[in-house]
């Protein structure tokens, strides 16, 4: 069983020790390259002009804001069904980076909306469901923190993580189900309405952001594991003294 291989913290640490810096370095190189190209060399848009360059930050952030919660939901499922302690740690580790990317998505979207639409914010389906995602992250982080301090069952945040995942397909479909100010998806199954001159740096930026995201999650998982070990060691010392 592949799950059992990674459920072993020792084996996980052996993997994470070299995978964390690798992901971070590759991610930083890809992101720096894609953003430099996107901000300085990619063409301006026919209608939006230079404001289109915010695309290279906005879209990868949206992708990872949603990817973060998907990680939480899958890890929560594994935690509830297979009771893997590493799954709990992975879900906790994904929450803060996911929230940060969701916030970046909302902020860059707002800055983009002002010159393009003529408004900083509207309560349409896409913008509202994305804001709800940010609030769900806050709820999850607060809940996981409370469980950690007060010692309640860690299954409570896991259930919250799975229930909250219902918002992900809603965000995705919001521009299709309801009339919205936000445009419908430009990239759908094998089709793209984005000119290749914009598309390539965007795809590389998304890959780079994703590598950084993976590296940060692994680093945070290692930090949580180290925390748990230190606590256990302190407790043992206190008992033997």
């Amino acid at each position: 069983m592949i799950m059992h291989i990674f459920a072993n913290p020792k084996r996980f640490l052996g993997l994470a020790t070299w995978l964390t810096p690798l992901l971070l370095v590759v991610g930083l190189v890809l992101t720096a390259g894609a953003l430099t190209y996107g901000l300085f060399f990619a063409p301006a848009d026919r209608l939006m002009g230079d404001t289109v360059r915010i695309l290279y930050i906005h879209v990868p952030s949206a992708w990872l804001g949603m990817g973060g919660w998907t990680t939480i939901a899958i890890a929560s499922l594994v935690e509830l069904v297979w009771r893997h302690p590493l799954a709990t740690i992975a879900a906790r580790a994904a929450a803060l980076p996911g929230a940060v990317f969701t916030a970046i998505c909302l902020i860059t979207g707002s800055i983009w909306g002002r010159p393009t639409w003529g408004t900083w914010w509207v309560w349409d389906g896409r913008l509202t469901s994305m804001l709800i995602l940010l609030f769900l992250y806050f709820g999850y982080i607060a809940l996981a923190g409370a469980v950690n301090r007060e010692g309640a069952s860690s299954r409570i945040p896991a259930i919250f993580g799975i229930v909250g995942a219902i918002n992900i397909p809603i965000i995705n479909r919001s521009v299709v189900w309801w009339n919205s100010l936000h445009q419908p998806p430009s990239i759908t199954m094998g089709k793209s309405a984005i000119d290749p001159a914009f598309l390539w740096p965007l795809l590389i930026a998304m890959l780079g952001f994703s590598c950084i995201f993976g590296g940060v999650i692994l680093a945070r998982m290692r930090a949580i594991l180290a925390d748990i070990q230190t606590e256990a060691r302190l407790r043992r010392k206190a008992l033997s003294a």
Partner: peptide
């Protein structure tokens, strides 16, 4: 009040 709605197409300026 008027709000402009952008569509899903992104085009370089050369096409102008």
């Amino acid at each position: 009040n008027l709000l402009a709605k952008h569509d899903e197409n992104y085009m370089p300026r050369e096409l102008d």
